[in-house]
Structure formats: C-alpha cells, structure tokens
C-alpha cells in the first residue's frame, strides 16, 4: 500500500521533519540518553538524603529542589527516566509484536481463526485500560516483570486490530494472489509480502501505543500500584511528593513536566509524519 518514499527528501525514515518535529525528536533523544547514562549523570546518589530541608526549592545546589525526605529531585528524575522509558518500551515491544503477529496471522489464515481471535480481542478492548491494570495488579502484584506483562497484555488488542485491518487490505491485493498461486506458504506471505507493506503505519502506531503505556504506567504508579519503592518512575515520584502540591513544590511539578514533555513530543513527532503513514486507522 505504501508507495516508495519520496527520493528528494532525506533524514529520519526518509522524510524531512518540520521544526516542531525536529524539536520533538530531540526531546525524545534527550530522554533516551538520560535513561541510558542515568547513573553517570546524576549529581547525587538516588536514595541518599542530601538536603536538610524537605520539599526544598530549586537552588544552585539542588537544581530541581528536594523531595519529601530531602533527596535530590534532579537525580531521582534522571534515574526515574530508566523506569518510565524502559518499562514502557519493553511493554510496547511485547504488545506491538504480539499484536502484529496475531493480526497478520488472522488476516492470512482467515476463517474461524480470524473470527474467534477478533471476538476475543474485541471483548478485551472493552475493559477500560486503567481498570484492567488495577485488577491485574491486585491479582499478581506489581513486580517489574508483572508490570511490563500487564501493560503489554492491555495494549495487545489495540495493536492487533490496527495490524489486522491493514493486513486484510493488503491481503486482497493481486501480488498476494500471485504469491499464493506460486505456492508460497503462510509464513512467507506474512513476512515477505504483507509485513513490508504495513510496517510504516505499524511503526507510527507503535509510537502512539508507547504514549498510552507511559500514561497508564504513570497513572498506576501515581495510585501507588505501579513501580514500588525504593525504585521510582516519574509517576511514582509524583505519588511520593503529592503532599507538596499545596506548597507548589518543584518535587511534584518536575516529574509531571518530565512525563508531559515525553508524551507530547512523541505525539508531535508522529503528527509530523506524512499523512499517508499516519491515517491508516481501522
């Protein structure tokens, strides 16, 4: 379905980004670097109480103030990036891969397999995601692997529906019929004929789903049911310091801004992609 990329423009994925898109890309890159090199960058040990004052204001010594125990907020946010980005990335990788594999399988195999799988996914999609998260966390607890799997499972149905709708369209094309007549097997059809034709919108969907997972993870952590202390992602940092809200403490505002900058940047970057890639929703 996707035509070959316009040859004149260069850059990411072969497209030229607008200024807004470039800034968004840089912000994402910035957080990625922070997440990878966190321990080397952080000015103070993450768990150490360094400020005599709690909910300290921003200062030259503590750029983002201190939290409810007097720990350095900047260091905690830098280390928190690892959890927010890492968990969300792991979750979205599992969710999108599973969704795309099942979606292509449903489109290529068709018949009762497709019907059964689609019904099941439709049922799963009608559980509100935050509620799903609450119930599963109540049942299996919130260790990091459990959290990643829960987030992944919640977003598989969406990825499945998206990929299946795309794959069904491609599946009716002549070159697929030709390949079938050639006697190619299902695996070849899915990987070599369908996947290359749906990969770009699937990647855009991957970005959106990453945002959803970051939002849900932050929400769960904010409720105190996500990442558990002593570890803390950005949502958990807001949870810990929420009493400081009435003081207008930087300890609440900074992690909120961190989440917002990440999610808004991903959204803007995807908005900046060419129309024909984005607007493929089912």
């Amino acid at each position: 379905m996707t035509q070959s990329a316009p040859t004149k423009s260069a850059g990411l994925f072969g497209y030229r980004l607008s200024p807004v898109g470039s800034i968004a890309f840089l912000v994402i890159l910035f957080w990625a670097v922070i997440a990878i090199f966190g321990p080397q960058i952080a000015p103070y040990p993450v768990g150490k109480i360094v400020d005599m004052d709690y909910f300290g204001p921003m200062s030259a010594k503590f750029w983002l103030g201190s939290d409810y125990l007097g720990r350095d907020m900047l260091s905690r946010i830098i280390l928190g990036a690892r959890y927010t980005l890492g968990i969300a990335l792991a979750g979205v990788l599992i969710a999108s891969t599973t969704g795309v594999v099942l979606g292509m399988a449903a489109a290529v195999v068709g018949g009762w397999f497709d019907t059964l799988l689609s019904r099941l996914m439709d049922a799963l999609i009608s559980i509100p995601s935050k509620l799903f998260g609450l119930v599963v966390v109540a049942a299996v607890g919130s260790s990091l692997p459990a959290l990643i799997l829960t987030l992944a499972v919640i977003y598989v149905p969406g990825a499945y529906r998206f990929a299946r709708a795309l794959a069904v369209n491609v599946n009716t094309m002549d070159f697929i019929t030709v390949a079938r007549i050639r006697g190619e097997n299902t695996l070849y059809l899915a990987i070599s004929e369908i996947l290359p034709n749906i990969i770009r919108p699937v990647l855009a969907d991957f970005g959106l789903r990453f945002v959803f997972i970051v939002l849900l993870l932050s929400g769960l952590s904010f409720l105190g049911l996500g990442v558990q202390p002593p570890l803390a992602d950005w949502g958990a940092l807001v949870h810990e310091n929420i009493q400081g809200l009435s003081l207008g403490a930087a300890a609440v505002i900074a992690p909120s801004l961190a989440i917002a900058s990440l999610t808004i940047s991903v959204n803007l970057l995807i908005d900046d992609l060419p129309r024909k890639i984005r607007d493929r929703s089912a």
Binding site: V211, G219, L245, G248, A260, T263, I264
Partner: peptide, 23 residues
C-alpha cells in the same frame, strides 16, 4: 486539547490544583 490528551490525568489535576487552589 493535544496538551491535555497527551498527559496523565493526575498532571491535569495537579496543574488545576496549582492554578486554582495554590496560586
């Protein structure tokens, strides 16, 4: 609207508290 949609609800809530209750 994009701003509100892209952030978690608790960020919207904290912003509202900061704006209407604290400041």
């Amino acid at each position: 609207t994009i701003g509100v949609i892209s952030v978690p609800e608790f960020v919207v809530a904290s912003t509202a508290v900061l704006l209407f209750a604290v400041y």
